[in-house]
Design a binder for these strands. Structure first.
Lengths: 268, 268
DNA sequence: CGGTTCGTTGAGGCCCATCAATCTATGTGG
DNA sequence: CCACATAGATTGATGGGCCTCAACGAACCG
């Protein structure tokens, strides 16, 4: 949204107006740590958007990646396949998310990145980003922020996988998605969940059969209603209470940038 | 170790020689991204080391922290307690690790940090680090690196918690610790594991009773032998094979710093 | 209309939790 | 030195949550 504001206020003859902002809406571009100049530098580094079919690997497991991929539209996931064929997702990537942040510093990926729906994706060369980060503190800090955010979500997932019942895990996932998608109005939440029950099972460490049964329980309790892939959570507050989900979940409010004066103080 | 080299090669009358390096051996100080100057700047920011008893909270769940805590000696953990009393650890902190990296940008912690053994700890003011990161790209990059490393470990844990059997989870944990502690010689690994079976259970998402039974199975199979808290893994290679653990696990090899020339190229 | 993917339902069984008791090691005070 | 208390490891019996295997229904599609 910040990206959108920028282009809206840019002068009519601006060069940026000639090509639509590629990172608009991405968490990267929305970072409060970026100056206008830094945001534009990132924008310039981005390659043209590309459209990818559903269920397509953007990056295979163990691949070597020279670009960071940003999901601009559609859903994707990070996954790992065990030797016995068991699969576990380690991230759900929503519009705005970076698919392979690790590639910034590690050459070999230890997961794969795959689309769940048709998606449009933007690639940004990792070396370019690294070079920009040297020049621009705000860009460096933005990537620290992104990495820490992923940390928060992964920590929540370990809680679910380690200590929660199947029903509670599913409820938690729905609450998380409701928050991340900003899908709530008047205590009700509506959003499209473009995943099969098998894929949901691979997030929750369950089988598709059991996800199905647990989902029915939630429906019977009136916590969830589904029509095709459309999810409705009639009472999100109650759902959150039932599974002990923290509404302040994901540190959605971004901390303010460090005031400039602080630098002088710390270095004195 | 790099820190140790530094003080060894510093001139006899150096100021640094007057106070022993506080961050020596920490992953922070060992970062290959730091120039000598940057490493010293971090060193200067560190408070004197403090000794803390076992089973003591460094930070309570949900606390507000203004410092980053670095575990210099001893073991600690990150944990979350559910309302029903169930506890799940989300990190094991070994000497050199940062306890609360999130505090760099998020004011409210969503976990607690607690010692497992007696430990010595160094605090570094977060605002100081943030200010240094603005001036020193190597410091900024080091923190990106630290955050991404935590990500890698958390991703591995989600695999274990979601898709592995109890025995495999335990084997994986032992392999991870063997690597992180660099405890292997001639295919055999020996290290002290200063945790109760209850604490191990809280890492693996199991009960202490079941950890006990599974540990006995591993003993019967000759994969593990224990004497008090001392672990011996007679054949780490076989243990790794039995549970499908990747020896290149933790990106122990740190990527080289970006060559300076790259900046000019990217910005041209 | 046949094929495919996905959702749903049922029967049976195993892994791990739960509850509880015993045993050992360690420490503490009289 | 022993009685006692406590923390942790160990063992057994029982039950439940979730898996496994299998079949069927529903929606979509060429």
């Amino acid at each position: 949204m910040i990206g959108a504001q920028l282009s809206a206020t840019s002068p009519a003859g601006d060069v940026a107006a000639c090509r639509p902002p590629r990172l608009a809406g991405s968490r990267l571009a929305a970072s409060a740590f970026l100056s206008r100049e830094e945001r534009q530098a990132l924008e310039d580094a981005a390659a043209p958007a590309r459209t990818v079919a559903a269920n397509t690997d953007l990056l295979q497991e163990g691949a070597h990646a020279d670009d960071l991929f940003i999901i601009v539209e559609g859903w994707a996931c990070r996954y790992v396949t065990a030797k016995d064929g068991g699969r576990q997702l380690s991230a759900l990537l929503l519009p705005g998310d970076v698919g392979n942040l690790d590639s910034l510093l590690f050459s070999r990926l230890d997961y794969g990145v795959r689309t769940l729906t048709e998606a449009t994706v933007v690639a940004v060369p990792r070396d370019w980003i690294l070079a920009l980060a040297v020049q621009h503190p705000g860009i460096a800090r933005t990537f620290i922020w992104l990495a820490l955010l992923e940390n928060v979500i992964l920590t929540k997932w370990t809680q679910s996988l380690g200590r929660r019942s199947a029903k509670s895990r599913l409820a938690h996932l729905l609450c998380e998605l409701s928050m991340r998608l900003d899908a709530e109005t008047d205590g009700e939440s509506r959003f499209t969940l473009p995943m099969t029950q098998e894929q949901i099972a691979d997030v929750l460490g369950l089988t598709a059969v059991h996800v199905n049964r647990v989902l029915q329980e939630l429906r019977l309790e009136g916590m969830v209603s589904t029509k095709y892939r459309r999810m409705i959570l009639p009472d999100v507050v109650r759902l959150r209470q039932s599974c002990g989900s923290d509404p302040h979940y994901l540190h959605m409010e971004q901390p303010a940038a460090t005031p400039r004066g602080m630098v002088a103080r710390a270095l004195s």
